[in-house]
C-alpha cells in the first residue's frame, strides 16, 4: 500500500531530513512512528501527501509513484488519507456535524453519502448526540474525536495521526488509541506518530523508530 524506495529529503541542499529510507506498510497495518523531535517523522508524513517533494527515491502509494504525479492529481492523492493533528484543527464556528459535513463537501460527496457517513463516523467515535455542539463546548478528548470522525467520514484507506494525544491526559489518550485500533480493525491502515511511550509499549504494534533521518528500528511487534 505504501512503499518508500531509497527516499532522501534534503532541505536547501544542506539539511538532511531523511536519508535513504526503505520501508513498506501493508494494507490494514497499524504502525507507530516514533523518534525524537527533528528525527524526520513530520517530513515522512509530508512526503506521503506530497506536501514536500522527495529529493531522491520513489514513493509508491497503491503501487503508483507519487513523486511523478501532476499537481492536479494531488487532491485525489490526499483523499486516500485521513488526517488527525495534535491541535485538532477543527472549525470553531461550526458545529460537530458541520465540521464533519465540511470534509464530505470537500470530496464532493452526494447528499446521501453525507447523511450516511455523518451518522456512521459519529457512531464510530462515540459522539452520537453531540452533533449540534460547538467544539468549544466539548472536552479536548471529544474534540479530537470530532477530528477523528472527520478523518474517517470520507472513508480513506489510510489514517494518519500526527501526535493525536499530545494535548490530552493519559486516560483520554487511551480512549483515542482504542478508537484508532477499532478503525484499524475494520481494514483501515493507521499510521500514528507519537511520543506516548506507555501506549506504544502496551499496544504491541509495529514500531518504526527514526533518528536523525534514518530508520534505526522497525519491529513488527515492538516497543518504544
Amino acid at each position: 500500500m505504501i512503499e518508500f524506495v531509497n527516499v532522501s529529503k534534503k532541505y536547501n541542499h544542506e539539511v538532511t531530513a531523511l536519508e535513504n529510507i526503505n520501508l513498506k506498510i501493508e494494507k490494514g497495518e497499524f504502525v507507530f512512528l516514533v523518534g525524537p523531535s527533528g528525527s524526520g517523522k513530520t517530513t515522512f508524513l509530508k512526503l506521503m501527501i506530497k506536501e514536500e517533494e522527495a529529493t531522491s527515491g520513489k514513493i509508491l502509494i497503491d503501487s503508483k509513484d507519487i513523486t511523478k504525479i501532476k499537481k492536479k492529481e494531488i487532491p485525489f492523492l490526499r483523499r486516500k488519507f485521513g488526517f488527525v493533528f495534535q491541535d485538532f484543527r477543527l472549525l470553531y464556528d461550526r458545529t460537530v456535524a458541520e465540521n464533519i459535513i465540511f470534509a464530505l463537501r470537500v470530496v464532493e460527496a452526494s447528499e446521501r453519502e453525507i447523511k450516511n457517513q455523518l451518522q456512521t463516523s459519529l457512531e464510530m467515535v462515540g459522539l452520537k448526540g453531540k452533533e449540534n455542539f460547538y467544539p468549544n463546548q466539548l472536552s479536548g478528548g471529544e474534540q479530537q474525536r470530532v477530528a477523528l470522525a472527520r478523518a474517517i467520514a470520507t472513508k480513506p484507506p489510510i489514517i494518519i495521526a500526527d501526535e493525536p494525544t499530545g494535548n490530552l491526559d493519559p486516560v483520554t489518550a487511551e480512549g483515542i488509541f482504542k478508537t484508532l485500533e477499532e478503525i484499524n480493525s475494520r481494514g483501515t491502515t493507521v499510521i500514528v506518530v507519537t511520543h506516548a511511550k506507555d501506549v506504544v509499549d502496551k499496544m504491541n504494534k509495529r514500531v518504526i523508530a527514526l533518528k536523525e533521518g534514518k530508520i534505526i528500528k522497525d519491529d513488527m511487534q515492538g516497543g518504544y
Binding site: R78, V107, T154
Partner: peptide, 11 residues
C-alpha cells in the same frame, strides 16, 4: 484555517 484543512482533506 478552512483552506488549510480543505487542502489536507483533498479539495
Amino acid at each position: 484555517r478552512e483552506i488549510l484543512i480543505m487542502r489536507y482533506i483533498g479539495a
